[in-house]
Amino acid sequence: MQAFVKTLTGKTITLEVEPSDTIENVKAKIQDKEGIPPDQQRLIFAGKQLEDGRTLSDYNIQKESTLHLVLR
């Protein structure tokens, strides 16, 4: 499924993900596309910070959801 990641600069990245993907996995995909190390990434969805060990389905993130990427 497709999900979108919006950065603070307003850029939107499109990712191909599965509901079973972990947040860690998603961060690795963002690193592949953008070169941002996962340890600098914080992903926010519905106002919550997403934890590495959880999956997209844990957070009820469905296709075409938009996550927000904040860098630390």
Rank of each mutant, 00 (worst) to 15 (best):
K11V: 09
V26E: 00
R54E: 05
L43Q: 01
D21A: 06
T22G: 03
G10A: 03
L43N: 00
P19Y: 08
A3T: 12
Q31C: 10
G53Q: 11
G10Q: 04
T12N: 05
K6C: 09
I44L: 13
K48Y: 10
I36A: 03
S57V: 07
M1I: 10
L8V: 14
I30F: 02
F4Q: 05
S57C: 05
T12Y: 10
E16C: 13
T22H: 04
V26M: 06
I61G: 02
Q62E: 12
T22R: 08
G47S: 05
A46V: 06
L43P: 00
A46D: 14
I36H: 10
I30A: 01
E51T: 07
V5L: 05
Q49F: 14
I30M: 03
E64P: 04
D39V: 09
K29E: 03
R72E: 14
K48E: 13
A46H: 14
I36Y: 13
T22D: 03
E24M: 13
D32A: 14
I30Q: 00
P38N: 07
K48L: 14
V70P: 01
L15K: 00
L71W: 09
K33E: 07
V70T: 10
E64Y: 14
D52H: 06
L67D: 01
V5Q: 01
V17L: 11
Q49L: 14
I61F: 10
P37R: 09
V17A: 03
V5R: 01
L71S: 08
D21T: 10
V26F: 04
G35F: 04
E18I: 11
L15A: 01
K63V: 08
T12I: 15
T9W: 14
I36M: 05
F4V: 08
K6G: 04
V70K: 08
Q31F: 15
L8K: 12
G53E: 10
S57F: 10
D39L: 09
K6D: 04
F4G: 02
E51S: 08
S20N: 13
N25M: 15
P37E: 08
S65K: 07
G47N: 07
K63R: 11
V17Q: 00
K63M: 11
K48S: 08
F4I: 09
T22V: 04
E34V: 15
Q41T: 05
D39I: 10
D32F: 11
V5Y: 02
K6E: 08
V26Q: 00
L56D: 00
Q2I: 15
I13F: 12
V5S: 01
K29L: 09
K11T: 08
A28D: 06
I36G: 02
K11R: 11
L56G: 01
R54T: 07
V26L: 11
V5A: 03
Q41R: 01
Q40T: 09
E16R: 09
M1C: 04
A28L: 14
G10E: 03
A3I: 15
I30C: 01
V26S: 00
K63C: 07
L43I: 10
E24A: 15
E64L: 10
K48I: 15
R72A: 14
I23S: 02
K11L: 10
L15P: 00
T7E: 03
S65Q: 09
F45R: 02
L8I: 12
G47W: 05
V70F: 13
Y59R: 00
G35I: 02
R54C: 09
T12D: 04
Q62N: 11
K33G: 04
K11I: 10
H68P: 01
K6Y: 10
K11Y: 12
P38S: 14
T12H: 06
L43M: 03
K11Q: 09
L15F: 07
I61C: 03
M1N: 03
L71K: 07
L43S: 00
A28C: 08
Q2A: 10
A46P: 01
N25G: 09
S57D: 09
G35S: 05
M1V: 06
